[in-house]
Amino acid sequence: MIELKNITKTYTNNNLSLQVLKGITFSIEDGEFVAIMGPSGSGKSTLMHIIGALDTPTSGQYLLDGHDVSTLAEDELARIRKTKIGFVFQAFNLLPRATVLRNASLPLMYAGVPKEERDDRAKKALLAAGLLESHFMHLSNQLSGGQMQRVAIARALVNNPSLILADEPTGNLDSKTGNVVLGTFQKLNREGHTIVLITHERDVAEHAQRIIFLRDGVIESDDRSHVQRKQSYDNA
């Protein structure tokens, strides 16, 4: 489903070039739960931007569901984000002056879905993300961190995307709430969603089936040993 072939990314500023990604190659199958891990400056955020169609690589090829995303223009990238990718961020990235329901339905609005259907699908996504119905009409800035992240997860789910990208989703949460959020990702993964989790914390990455470790713009390891352990855990 996701295929990256020899991806590089170089930033140039005042004739000064900095290669952040140096030939990244890997693929992620449908239904996988993958953590991309690495220390600060390893290139994981840049990689997330490319996987999330927020940026394009300097060279290499990125195929999402068989479509080459690496050479698309701005508006085509926006269409990919709208239809195929759901984002969850550390800072939640919710509209503070909008209600929970409106935040969750935002991607549907840009997809041109009528209001009634929008609200219906947003409510279902919010319930699936574990948010109580009594919170739906609250402003997003009236919620706790954990609740805000659930709204963000609902927003990521609402379009039924092929891929959910989570960038340090527990970074602003206490460990208990963080575990609840990670549990939600595991539940979504069991339901068939493909999840890519970006983190620098080993214990967060441990929730995934597979951990890709980045260092200095290259893949240092691609550990699939968690798959077996997770399957046993899930079966249990």
Binding site: D75, A78, R81, N93, L106, P107, Y110, A111
Partner: peptide, 16 residues
Amino acid sequence: RDEIAIKKLVGATNGF
């Protein structure tokens, strides 16, 4: 700018 960034993340085109 923050709202714009969020809207772009969830698929708003530059035209929108």
